[in-house]
Design a protein around this nucleic acid. Structure first.
Lengths: 204, 204
DNA sequence: CGGCGTCTTGACATAAATCAACCAATGTGG
DNA sequence: CCACATTGGTTGATTTATGTCAAGACGCCG
């Protein structure tokens, strides 16, 4: 079907403002999506995992930059061919709508996090969201989470600095809620408490 | 067509978690949408104006609470009838998708605001967004903006406190970027500077 | 006119940012 | 194969933007 595409770590797939001439699905690796302010401040709006679709856009213009976190493979389809396909398969239109609605709900959840949660609550929520996502994929409980993104990427996703991320990580370790298995892999040790922290019921 | 519906100021239309049995369009007045954390912290995720459609949901459950800011009128349609209508009019499905994609882009913009902008930048961005929205409606430049929501609502929308909103408002007044025509009506005096402030190019 | 809720302003507290070392892992060239 | 540079991460000291707490002003409605 579409064209195979490979990206090395740090390579951009497209930039914010570029004309959106293709849609993509990620087949392996991981990608971060972000927006920049004129002075360089960055907000990461999401992380893509294998299986995710990348193609929702308004006015045929990319609303954010997409950049590989590690070696990644994608399938790309020309926008025009994709649009034709959608035209001919009405049920795909509905699926596309469902996808957008789902992402919208996630974005609203992230607004709550960015607008109202403390640093500790943000990290706890982030880890739980990653865990839940992985669990939905494999359908079963998970203890280990891979973090293909850097501390700065996490900070820019959670509206914090890398230093604060580091410090909160140390705190959660000290409280034995998580363990840093490797620099890019955490183990959830006490999920119930982590959930309480995420909800603001527990101060950690 | 749909059923007419009236709400007084402060009256909820539905609550977060309620089954989404109807969809709505706002015909007059104004409505705020918000999510709550267990301890009462609130994040306003949007404000609705006449003409806006309210019905995008996942799993037939409302993702937020909707509450009237002032006396408002809506048209409501049972979800089932609306779904039938969509089924029979394929082009509506596409329009619905467009709408969701547009709201998603707005949500991502709001993430940048909440995650990375200063209090002053947030207020400036907020006023400009309101102005642009009104201008899209009437197609022409606008100087006056109505604020049907309270300072607390603005604060909960921008991830601030009502006190900070008040102080920044005073600052923008002192700098002659805006004028408080009435407590719920501002006049934009220096749009160019306001835009610079919103972008972080000017410190106000 | 009086009381109540919202808004504003001020004094002070604090969570997180900033600034600055230091450390650990990784890669490079002699 | 080992100094050494480089990069990302951690930790500490200090600053700061915004939050919190408190008091007063304003405006609105009964």
């Amino acid at each position: 079907m579409g064209n195979q595409l490979r990206l090395g770590a740090g390579q951009p797939l497209f930039h914010e403002g570029d004309p959106a001439m293709s849609v993509f699905t990620l087949t392996s690796g991981a990608i971060k999506l972000y927006k920049l302010l004129p002075d360089g401040r960055r907000q990461v709006t999401g992380f893509m995992q294998p299986g995710d679709f990348l193609g929702i856009s308004v006015d045929d213009e990319h609303a954010f930059t997409a950049e590989a976190l590690e070696h990644s493979q994608l399938c790309s389809f020309p926008r025009s061919r994709f649009d034709n396909f959608v035209e001919e398969n009405v049920e795909v239109e509905r699926e596309l709508y469902r996808l957008a609605a789902h992402e919208l709900a996630a974005a609203q959840q992230q607004m709550v996090l960015l607008g109202r949660k403390t640093a500790t609550e943000r990290l706890a929520s982030f880890f739980l969201a990653l865990a839940e996502r992985a669990e939905r994929a494999i359908d079963g409980e998970i203890r280990f989470i891979r973090l293909p993104m850097s501390r700065s990427d996490i900070a820019d996703y959670l509206g914090l600095t890398k230093e604060t991320v580091s410090r909160v990580l140390a705190l959660l370790k000290r409280q034995r809620l998580i363990r840093l298995d490797a620099i890019d892999r955490i183990e959830i040790l006490d999920r119930a408490s982590l959930e309480q922290v995420a909800a603001g019921d527990l101060d950690a």
